[in-house]
Amino acid sequence: MAGTAGETPELIKVHSGAVEVPYDWHCGPYWSRFFRGLRDEKKIYATKCPSCGRVYIPPREVCGPCFARMDEWVEVGPEGVIEMFTVVRLPYTNPSTGEPLSVPYTDVYVRLDGADTSLMHWLDETDEKKIAVGMRVRAVFRDKRTGTMHDIEHFKLI
């Protein structure tokens, strides 16, 4: 049995391998149109509820409160206001690459002009003294766009 009197028996830890879970997400007609808009037109499209008139960004099929299908498309942005933000200073692993994320960077939720919900993105300013809720920002599109959220590089203060 365990070690001699007075010794604390060693408690063992076993590793069960690195988790790799690659997902392929179907974007369907709604998000596909949204991503095509970013990629091909540098435009941000949202859906509008036929019942309550709420404009959803990112667009989706169903308005939860009304349980109604949204078929109307509207263009929103590319400018908007900062609704909330945080400057990140704690380094952690980028779950998509396994590499450490370099800090600082700024997470921002932008309420785009014409939208009733907010879009998460990065802000190109990391000095919190220069950022405030309610400031106006504008989407900066990449030159090379592939049809993902990264087609917007970041938002900048205007």
Partner: peptide, 9 residues
Amino acid sequence: PLPREDMVF
């Protein structure tokens, strides 16, 4: 070719 939300709806 649909997101699961649409399938569920």
